[in-house]
Design a protein around this nucleic acid. Structure first.
Lengths: 357, 357
DNA sequence: CCCTGTTTTACAAATATTTACCACACCCCT
DNA sequence: AGGGGTGTGGTAAATATTTGTAAAACAGGG
């Protein structure tokens, strides 16, 4: 029979049972060398037998910390409605796993508005010791503000803007954009459009890579960027509208995310255009469904797991008063069928190669 | 100029500035009627001007609570690697939004193993006032244990097992399975197989619906269930293996999730079978990508948003010492093209109908 | 002016933990 | 035998808040 739940066991209970003072219990449980090994063992034994669990509120109060990191999804779209991109969940999972290694808690927020006071909301009441923000957003003023106040902050984002000195971890978006676009061009495509909202720094990096690939090939004049938000609907509707207005004026699409790419492909198919024969499409992210789409999606893979780990490591350094440098992760082009390079592609090849991941 | 960050402003600072005692400040900030309206106004004004934020650790310590709810993803697959089903993120988002309304924090856990002591981990150190578990899992002993210890607990799951008295919110999985299967049968399919692991109660409910639909139609003998885990890979591989072994012995597939359904469709296509002509497929969840898959996926929609709201409402009741009843949400069949009923389906129809909802 | 009753505010205890400082005992050396 | 170091463990203060109780201030009626 466990203790009465109305009075959970506290340090003073242990102290009374062990016949020592509370401070001794505290030191014993923290393996403080001031305490004799024998007493320490005895006290820890009593604590175990009473199923004692330290009260984190009290400890955090005394130690002026929270042992918690806030994780914020910051896609810019207010209300937090439409962030169901699978990419996000993978990222949060990776962060959660790594934080658990550090025995830190993960406080999740998604409905934080751009005009809120982020410092007050995330750090002000000492709810968290540090913040990880996923997505740099269109307006990074809240992030700058956080950084200026000295809050430990790591951002998953794009390139550093001038005056933004917070620690950014990101994929090499320019490299990814370049890989994707060069690949399309190398397959003979001559009019490749870019689908994505360049107001987001991470998207803008992909756009830059796209542009340099075009100019490298002497096709700089054919550049065309169309702003699209982060959903499949948006990709679909944009393609329908565009072709409805102008006809099919392009033979390649580089989409800023896999979700957008899939919407775009559906739009092309709806209008009777074949992918990849008429239009080749490349996405970004390599979400889990990508190999199983029709056609299987050629895309740029980001190392989400490593990214999550890195962000946690860096935010822990900042919490500990150390410095943390920005870091850029390489991307990898995954060639499947939607680009036209690999019409025979079947997922099974991939899983044999990778030993089922 | 904000205060020196090394000494955040506390109640005693406000008290000194206002020339009153700390207790008066506390009551004033909590709008306690014991405090004269004029002093209250004055104190709140001072607090605002000093950018005062209450220290939640201290408050929680004093009030013996944490103002936090733990949310656990419990798909049973240890390590927390493969839960990137978009369904999960939608659910967590819905829960987070609703918790924010209550001004409660969301503590996120995913790497909790089945053999851990859930109570210690989630509640023991007073980290959370209650727990929401997403997924009943194959083994619900940890959940029973939590409930027996009196922890406020709400579970997203399937049907109640005998002896499990925790509060369950769920979709009407039997209804959904019945809708899906009956739909396939009404389209003339005569050999429909079920893809999913019935060890999970929620999946088992869908399987029950599938079975009753078959027996209702006199096709009970044709029942066939194949265990598949929660990923597209698994759906794909299962179909490849099955047809490789036995040839195409079925003309319909009801998959326990959209991810599985998409993997299965890809497997069928890989072997040269047409969907929906040769085999009709229906999924479950209506994830955002479903309308944009090829063919657009016929599926059973769950009201995730309402589910998240309900779970939060119920867990708050439990935290407040009230009771909370289980609740079952109706499902809705969404007919697109993968079942063969609606070959002309295009996403745009849907979005016009729903006003881009 | 005093008594009563009401309004307003102060005092102090309580929450569970950590830690700087102090005290006691013991042993060895002188 | 006393002094100084060392190994232990206790005392009390500190963290920021809430709340029961006491007390002061104040008004009104006799």
């Amino acid at each position: 029979m466990p203790k009465d739940s109305s009075s959970p066991v506290s340090m003073s209970d242990i102290a009374r049972l062990a016949g020592v003072s509370e401070s001794t219990v505290s030191r014993a449980l923290n393996n403080n060398p001031l305490i004799n090994e024998k007493t320490r063992e005895r006290i820890q034994q009593i604590a175990r037998s009473m199923n004692y669990k330290i009260n984190e509120s009290a400890r955090n109060l005394r130690l002026k910390r929270s042992h918690t990191i806030s994780v914020v999804i910051n896609t810019g779209c207010a209300g937090g409605q439409t962030f169901s991109d699978p990419f996000m969940l993978d990222m949060i999972g990776a962060i959660a796993d790594k934080l658990a290694q550090y025995k830190y808690d993960l406080l999740f927020s998604n409905s934080i508005a751009s005009n809120d006071d982020w410092h007050s909301y995330l750090m002000g009441s000492r709810r968290a010791d540090g913040v990880i923000v996923i997505g740099q957003g269109v307006d990074d003023n809240p992030l700058r503000e956080l950084q200026k106040l000295g809050d430990p902050l790591v951002v998953w984002g794009g390139t550093t803007k001038p005056g933004s000195e917070y620690c950014i971890v990101s994929s090499d978006n320019q490299m990814g954009g370049h890989q994707a676009t060069k690949h399309l061009l190398s397959l003979g495509r001559r009019k490749v459009i870019f689908l994505g909202d360049t107001a987001h720094p991470e998207i803008n990096g992909r756009y830059e890579g796209y542009r340099t690939a075009l100019t490298d090939t002497g096709l700089g004049k054919t550049e065309r960027q169309i702003p699209v938000s982060f959903s499949s609907e948006s990709g679909y509707q944009t393609i329908i509208d565009l072709i409805g207005r102008e006809g099919l004026t392009f033979d390649g699409v580089f989409a800023a995310s896999d979700s957008i790419a899939m919407g775009a492909i559906k739009g092309l198919q709806a209008l009777g255009h074949k992918v990849p024969e008429d239009v080749a499409v490349v996405g970004f992210d390599d979400i889990p469904i990508a190999p199983f789409y029709t056609p299987p999606l050629t895309t740029v893979r980001q190392n989400i797991h490593r990214a999550g780990e890195l962000m946690v490591e860096k935010v822990m350094r900042l919490v500990g008063g150390q410095s943390a440098e920005p870091e850029v992760l390489p991307t990898e082009l995954v060639v499947r069928a939607s680009c036209g390079a690999n019409p025979e592609y079947q997922p099974v090849q991939e899983f044999f190669q990778e030993g089922h991941g």
